[in-house]
Amino acid sequence: DHDVVPEDKFQETLHLKEKEGCPQAFHALLSWLLTQDSTAILDFWRVLFKDYNLERYGRLQPILDSFPKDVDLSQPRKGRKPPAVPKALVPPPRLPTKRKASEEARAAAPAALTPRGTASPGSQLKAKPPKKPESSAEQQRLPLGNGIQTMSASVQRAVAMSSGDVPGARGAVEGILIQQVFESGGSKKCIQVGGEFYTPSKFEDSGSGKNKARSSSGPKPLVRAKGAQGAAPGGGEARLGQQGSVPAPLALPSDPQLHQKNEDECAVCRDGGELICCDGCPRAFHLACLSPPLREIPSGTWRCSSCLQATVQEVQPRAEEPRPQEPPVETPLPPGLRSAGEEVRGPPGEPLAGMDTTLVYKHLPAPPSAAPLPGLDSSALHPLLCVGPEGQQNLAPGARCGVCGDGTDVLRCTHCAAAFHWRCHFPAGTSRPGTGLRCRSCSGDVTPAPVEGVLAPSPARLAPGPAKDDTASHEPALHRDDLESLLSEHTFDGILQWAIQSMARPAAPFPS
């Protein structure tokens, strides 16, 4: 592969990997390779389809078979030569091979799209000592099968071997295949498990690692696999990028399955594409389908809103127990993405979901129960707010008499603000006073009005108090039968009158 990737590009890729991570280095090298001529790309395919690569990765054979028959990708048995050289000459001794072996032994695996480039050397060096003999053996194999790289107009793939297949390693990572398949204008990513390549439709969760975000852009890794992070704060999961590491605690105790298979379609829109997988259930989501939507993949363990709600429900009964003089119970939860139609709101002032922060849900004790107040519409209280300059209440639009249902020339009671006709409430011909108009209920007259088809109010509507207090003497005590009587009149003013009279009014101040 030294004929494909020059030394300066190799060093530039290593520097970019240390600065921005393996995914960015892979993407940059792939983009550079696509700008080369067809001879360089053909050399790339020839390096990929060597015999030892085909033996190690069985899924490469179907890719090789898909090439046109007129494309010669065979390799000479006596060494490598550029395709432009007409004579089959043995190339001179390859010093770059020693360079590659020494550099890969030092860096474990470079971040390139060629056999030198995919593992994360920093994480491997940190986690190597417990498994040094086995990992050293794996390093000797890295130059042979560490990076199976493929690129063409139909298929483009980048393979990364790992030393996680050490025997006896619980939940060992089998390997990473960062794979971009450009077929019919689409893009897919796969993962390699035990020599087999699994596409998103049959993606397997190998051991402790999972394909957290099938994305090839942005600074985030394709698999949430930063070796420096180790395990999740809650004892979460091992990262795919942690090559040759000792077994780590796999999943939280509440995880239903340690080796679950995540779905390959969004649980909201039932469509495929780039998904984020939940650590607590097999569901996966688009970032845009979450509520609120996320802009980037959160670091650490992530769970959907259903799993978060289940966790909150487990903690909430203990938080609601009476604990005198104790601060509110704080339950730190990872930043969760909410699927459509589901929402768990945190306290005000918290950062938005999706940031690399930890939301704190506070379970406050329930407030003391209070008697429910009568629910009145805002339009129902409008007549009470229509007060004239002299303190006389004006008529609201649409006000109707509670007896006849007519809204023409209605009066407004100064005591309960109900609309009424003087002739309907006082049919006996009582003279109307000039000021202080009161309806039949507030004036103490319980004589029913002779209106055909309208039920008369119940005599129990009024329960006047002592006459010594004029204001308190007109406080009506309405009961269920009074409400039914008012409802039978089918008037809004009657219902409003009952609601206003049912509310307690402050006692009249004593004259000074």
Results as ranks from 00 to 15, higher is better:
242 Q>P: 13
245 S>A: 08
245 S>G: 14
246 V>E: 11
246 V>G: 11
250 L>M: 14
250 L>W: 12
251 A>L: 10
252 L>Q: 13
253 P>N: 04
253 P>C: 04
254 S>C: 11
256 P>S: 14
262 N>F: 08
264 D>F: 07
268 V>K: 11
270 R>P: 11
271 D>I: 04
275 L>K: 02
279 D>M: 03
280 G>C: 15
282 P>F: 08
283 R>M: 10
285 F>H: 14
288 A>E: 08
292 P>Y: 12
294 L>W: 15
296 E>S: 11
297 I>G: 12
302 W>T: 13
303 R>F: 12
304 C>I: 08
306 S>A: 12
306 S>T: 12
308 L>G: 11
309 Q>K: 10
310 A>K: 05
310 A>Q: 04
319 A>W: 14
319 A>C: 11
321 E>F: 14
323 R>D: 11
324 P>Q: 11
326 E>D: 09
327 P>I: 12
330 E>L: 14
331 T>H: 11
332 P>F: 14
332 P>I: 06
333 L>R: 11
333 L>H: 13
341 G>D: 02
342 E>K: 14
344 V>D: 03
345 R>G: 09
345 R>T: 10
346 G>K: 12
346 G>R: 06
347 P>I: 12
349 G>E: 12
350 E>I: 09
351 P>T: 12
354 G>I: 15
355 M>E: 07
356 D>L: 03
358 T>D: 08
359 L>A: 02
361 Y>D: 06
361 Y>A: 06
363 H>F: 12
366 A>K: 07
373 L>Q: 11
374 P>H: 13
374 P>M: 15
377 D>A: 11
377 D>C: 12
377 D>P: 09
378 S>M: 14
379 S>M: 14
379 S>N: 06
382 H>R: 07
384 L>K: 08
384 L>C: 13
389 P>R: 08
391 G>E: 06
393 Q>I: 08
395 L>W: 14
396 A>K: 02
400 R>E: 14
400 R>I: 03
400 R>Y: 03
403 V>E: 04
404 C>Y: 03
404 C>V: 02
406 D>P: 02
410 V>S: 09
411 L>Q: 06
412 R>K: 12
413 C>V: 00
415 H>Q: 11
417 A>E: 13
419 A>T: 09
420 F>G: 03
421 H>G: 02
422 W>Y: 10
426 F>K: 07
426 F>Y: 14
427 P>Q: 07
428 A>E: 09
430 T>Q: 02
431 S>K: 12
435 T>R: 06
437 L>R: 10
437 L>S: 05
440 R>P: 05
441 S>P: 12
443 S>F: 13
445 D>T: 06
445 D>V: 08
449 A>P: 15
449 A>E: 13
449 A>N: 13
457 P>C: 13
458 S>I: 11
459 P>F: 10
462 L>Y: 14
463 A>Q: 10
465 G>V: 14
468 K>A: 04
470 D>S: 08
471 T>F: 09
473 S>E: 06
473 S>K: 04
475 E>C: 08
477 A>Q: 08
479 H>N: 10
485 S>L: 10
485 S>Q: 15
489 E>R: 01
489 E>L: 00
491 T>W: 05
497 Q>M: 01
499 A>N: 02
500 I>T: 05
500 I>G: 03
502 S>G: 15
503 M>I: 13
504 A>E: 09
506 P>T: 09
507 A>W: 04
508 A>M: 05
